[in-house]
């Protein structure tokens, strides 16, 4: 038998597909390259290249409106990620480990925020808050306003679904016998959760939390609807600026946001993947 050393000649179809892949790739990434390159442009004018400079990045960190929006973004992201991760994990546990009345319906409804159009969700939330505040005012004379609170609540509302999906996938791989074994070895429900279940689903919880964080930091549509005056988040602020014309400042802000998102997504993937190998065989076999 002869040893194959060279590569097999490519068929025309293969060449075509390969070329196509590269074109698609270019189509995706060309705009990003343009954005990044121009964010380092010294010129006041967006479209005219003069020389490389970090000028606009400096401007970003000096601009109080941008910094305020960034601060809001971070506060909202922190609150909504924390709350959504806790509630979403609890929902996943309830759905995977217990049987209760109305579970089917609950199961279906939980995924609604993922499916329905974002604008619809935004309008719903806006209406809900407006009506709710009116009612509160009438009932107890307290009239809250739109702002960080409403944005956080809205982000929690859609993030719970995503966290639940991710945590449930992880829980589904977990052998329920492990929890029984813990109980058999005198662990209370809480001890079994703390000592066995939680450590084993932690990669899923962390992945869900990072996903929630990313979604919260990126959201424009819903936030735009439920934000109050002076309480915009960074993406909403950028969106507002764009309508008044693109400035090089926006390029720099966008690149920073892009970089942050990519880091978060990469870390999130790392959690999901790095943990997969740690799921022991006994889990996969059983059932």
């Amino acid at each position: 038998m002869s040893v194959v050393t060279g590569l097999r000649p490519k068929s025309p179809a293969e060449r075509l597909l390969a070329t196509n892949s590269w074109l698609v790739f270019a189509f995706f990434y060309a705009p990003i390259v343009v954005l990044v390159v121009f964010s380092f442009n010294a010129n006041e004018n967006v479209g005219i290249w003069t020389e490389p400079s970090l000028r606009w990045y400096r401007e970003v960190f000096r601009d109080e409106a941008v910094m305020g929006a960034l601060r809001n973004s971070l506060i909202v992201a922190a609150i909504s990620t924390t709350v959504a991760t806790i509630l979403g994990t609890m929902a996943a546990l309830a759905l995977e480990r217990f049987r209760f009345r109305g579970q089917r319906v609950y199961d279906g409804l939980l995924y609604l925020p993922i499916i329905i159009p974002e604008v619809t969700m935004a309008v719903m939330l806006l209406l809900f808050f407006a009506q709710g505040f009116q009612w509160l005012d009438g009932a107890i004379g307290w009239s809250p306003t739109f702002g960080i609170g409403t944005i956080s609540l809205s982000h929690i509302a859609f993030n719970i679904s995503f966290v639940t999906v991710v945590v449930r996938a992880r829980l589904g791989q977990l052998d329920p016998r492990l929890e029984e074994a813990a109980a058999d070895l005198y662990a209370t429900r809480w001890q079994a959760f703390r000592g066995i279940t939680l450590p084993l689903i932690l990669p899923g919880v962390a992945g869900g939390a990072l996903l929630a964080l990313t979604l919260s930091l990126d959201d424009v549509v819903i936030t735009n609807f439920v934000a109050g005056p002076g309480s915009t988040t960074l993406p909403v602020y950028v969106f507002g600026l764009v309508r008044r014309g693109v400035t090089p400042l926006i390029n720099a802000v966008s690149v920073i946001m892009l970089a942050a998102s990519m880091v978060l997504v990469a870390v999130s993937f790392g959690f999901q993947r790095g943990s997969r190998g740690r799921v022991p065989e006994s889990m996969a076999e059983d059932g």
């Binding site: 074994a181 109980a183 058999d184 084993l200 740690r278 006994s282 076999e285 059983d286």
Partner: peptide, 27 residues
């Protein structure tokens, strides 16, 4: 189960994957 003086050996073993052998035994 945690209040019964019995212990179980599972068919799938159900060893805790994130603990060493001795941690499993000492649980």
């Amino acid at each position: 189960p945690n209040e019964r003086p019995v212990n179980t050996v599972f068919q799938s073993y159900a060893l805790f994957p994130h603990m060493t052998v001795e941690e499993n035994v000492g649980f």
